[in-house]
Design a protein around this nucleic acid. Structure first.
Lengths: 141, 141
DNA sequence: CAGGAGTTTGAGAACGGTTGTCAACTTGGT
DNA sequence: ACCAAGTTGACAACCGTTCTCAAACTCCTG
């Protein structure tokens, strides 16, 4: 018998709703800090720590996808499908397209097995510059 | 005419040799801090900043491969081949096997093009637990 | 074998994203 | 309304990495 046996269900708070709502707005990957700022500017401020906590909770629950930007920041987005998939992400604006790596899954598993590795996990992400960002070229951000 | 025109060649120093040497020893991915500690324990100390600088230089020169661990740390290893390839890495000890993603390259390019993205880059890494680490199970580190 | 211009080093400060702390505040069941 | 337990947020702490800049070193030249 462990702790989870006695754990009460999560509560619905203004903050959680606000974060979830902010994510619902866009199809672009956003950092915790960006979301924090967005909420603040909306006049719907939520503490930074709370933003981080909420995003993590949503992530483990499978409600949002997380990925690491090329410089190590965690980016979040509410994804359409809950099944496993990958992303083609604009490194400039964060806009993303969901894609499936056709054979990637079994390829990963078989390569792993062939070398005696177990518990194989894989990261497959595509980075590029989207059409819109290509358009407004040297523009800052 | 830019600066590079006037830049002198890099110099060989004890520190650079030491870092390169430390990398030559192992087939495992190592963090900058691990290498720094390794050198120190060898009595061949090199400043941490220098370790970082040297690793970066080696990386841009294509002499070492870099990848990000699952928790965001940069890991370095001197790889056998200079051509593009991917890795199957033990998340416990860093031991790695070089692999090639058969069709990954062109798949990435075509998926990118199909969505109007340019300058496509891809990250494909496999994480698992190697046979040796599976053996000494609950052992710390 | 100096001399010296220009490169490299390293200790420590600074940085930026993220997590920990803990008293005050909510939420939801009764 | 009351209360036990979950949640919040301002702030400090953390951790990997980069910056700073005076001192040390390389290597070219005479």
């Amino acid at each position: 018998m462990n702790d989870t046996t006695h754990r009460n269900p999560p509560r619905m708070t203004r903050q959680r709703a606000a974060v979830a709502d902010a994510l619902g707005d866009t199809d672009e990957f956003r950092s915790a800090q960006q979301l924090h700022e967005l909420l603040r500017s909306r006049g719907d401020a939520v503490g930074l720590a709370t933003v981080y906590r909420t995003l993590q909770a949503l992530a483990v629950g499978g409600d949002v996808d997380v990925l690491r930007s090329e410089d190590g920041e965690s980016l979040y987005r509410r994804c359409a499908r809950r099944e496993h998939h990958h992303h083609l992400v604009c490194r400039r604006c964060g806009r993303a397209v969901e894609i499936d790596g056709p054979t990637v899954e079994q390829w990963a598993a078989s390569v792993g097995a062939a070398h005696g590795f177990i518990d194989i996990d894989h990261t497959v992400e595509l980075w590029g510059t989207c059409a819109a960002c290509r358009a407004d070229d040297g523009r800052p951000n």
